[in-house]
Computed example of a mutant assay.
Amino acid sequence: MKLLPIFVFSVLLLSCNQKKKENISENSRKADTTKVIPVETDGGIGDGATSITDLHINTIETAHKKEQFLKHKIVSFMIDLSFGGKERLKGKITMFTNSTKIRIDKNDGTKLIYTGDTSYLCPAEANDKGARFDMFTWSYFFGFPYKLSDSGTNWEMQQDRILDKVVHSTAKLTFDEGVGDAPKDWYIVYTDPETQLTQAAAYIVTLGKDISKAEEDPHMIQYKEFTSVNGIPMSTKWEFYGWTSEKGKTEKIGEATISDITFLEDESDLFEKPANSKVIN
């Protein structure tokens, strides 16, 4: 009977030692797990995960129903655009949803057509001043929310900015060398915090000018009055402002009304070289 306390004590000691070993093993396992957690150096959110920037752009494109938009071959719309109280462009723009072909029929009878390879002005005797700018700028602004992840685009998340007293997340878009007519252009895109739609974009225009000159006079386009077309949200009112990094948008300089947005599936001869036309460079 005297051996029983010694036996019980031995059992308890062995049990405590085993528990201590298990605790040490568990702590070691946790420490090892902590050590092998990878740290993303490119703004990612986990090993193999989409980067924060890519996730941001994907969210915007999803909000704009990009996949649904690109299922259509062609989109057309009426545009009434003015700057400084003077009409800049009034007519109809028809374009491939992927922007590879564009046609502008102005109310004055002038036509601009981009066949996918060459840009034409019709009639040949029409004034070609600003023709190439008109051809690609306004169609780009219309298709902007669907082109955020095009090949050659680069994104950098920036600080939150206030627009109309509301805090918006912003990101800067730049382009690889040789992309488009003006690869040195940049955009700072404001995203609506509730809808995740593109609310505005500050930008510079470098076509025909040095980038340092362009950066002295940045502008902003603000997208307003969204409507649903075939379930796709589209802005029917554009407003243009001056813009600075410190103040955001400043004075209003222009506006555009977008109407009669229609999808087409048959291009017919819409984007063929017109008779009595000339190439615009």
Results as ranks from 00 to 15, higher is better:
residue 146 Y to E: 01
residue 66 K to G: 03
residue 146 Y to Q: 02
residue 107 N to V: 13
residue 114 Y to K: 08
residue 91 G to D: 03
residue 50 T to K: 12
residue 111 K to A: 07
residue 120 Y to A: 01
residue 25 S to C: 07
residue 134 D to T: 11
residue 72 H to P: 04
residue 62 T to M: 10
residue 57 I to D: 02
residue 67 E to D: 13
residue 50 T to C: 04
residue 86 K to W: 09
residue 44 G to T: 01
residue 112 L to M: 11
residue 76 S to Q: 09
residue 46 G to Q: 04
residue 57 I to G: 06
residue 65 K to H: 13
residue 103 R to Q: 13
residue 87 E to Q: 15
residue 149 S to K: 10
residue 53 T to K: 11
residue 80 D to A: 11
residue 68 Q to M: 14
residue 42 D to A: 04
residue 39 V to A: 09
residue 25 S to Q: 12
residue 142 F to N: 02
residue 94 T to F: 07
residue 85 G to T: 06
residue 96 F to M: 15
residue 50 T to D: 02
residue 32 D to C: 10
residue 51 S to Q: 03
residue 72 H to S: 10
residue 54 D to M: 09
residue 119 S to G: 06
residue 64 H to R: 06
residue 120 Y to N: 01
residue 98 N to D: 15
residue 46 G to F: 05
residue 86 K to Q: 15
residue 75 V to I: 10
residue 57 I to C: 05
residue 43 G to P: 05
residue 68 Q to P: 03
residue 144 F to M: 08
residue 142 F to C: 04
residue 106 K to A: 12
residue 121 L to W: 07
residue 43 G to H: 00
residue 136 F to H: 14
residue 19 K to S: 09
residue 73 K to N: 15
residue 85 G to E: 01
residue 106 K to S: 12
residue 18 Q to G: 05
residue 64 H to K: 03
residue 84 G to P: 03
residue 95 M to P: 05
residue 30 K to M: 13
residue 67 E to T: 15
residue 122 C to P: 00
residue 22 E to K: 13
residue 34 T to Q: 11
residue 145 P to H: 04
residue 97 T to P: 04
residue 148 L to A: 06
residue 115 T to A: 06
residue 116 G to I: 03
residue 148 L to Y: 06
residue 86 K to M: 12
residue 82 S to Q: 12
residue 26 E to Y: 00
residue 31 A to H: 12
residue 148 L to Q: 01
residue 107 N to G: 14
residue 142 F to W: 01
residue 79 I to F: 04
residue 130 G to N: 13
residue 71 K to Q: 15
residue 65 K to G: 09
residue 126 A to W: 01
residue 62 T to V: 14
residue 48 G to M: 03
residue 49 A to I: 08
residue 97 T to Y: 04
residue 47 D to E: 08
residue 78 M to C: 00
residue 147 K to H: 10
residue 117 D to M: 10
residue 114 Y to A: 07
residue 61 E to A: 08
residue 99 S to Y: 08
residue 62 T to W: 12
residue 25 S to L: 11
residue 54 D to Y: 00
residue 47 D to C: 00
residue 127 N to K: 08
residue 98 N to H: 07
residue 140 Y to A: 09
residue 90 K to L: 14
residue 56 H to I: 08
residue 51 S to V: 03
residue 88 R to W: 12
residue 23 N to M: 13
residue 90 K to E: 02
residue 94 T to N: 08
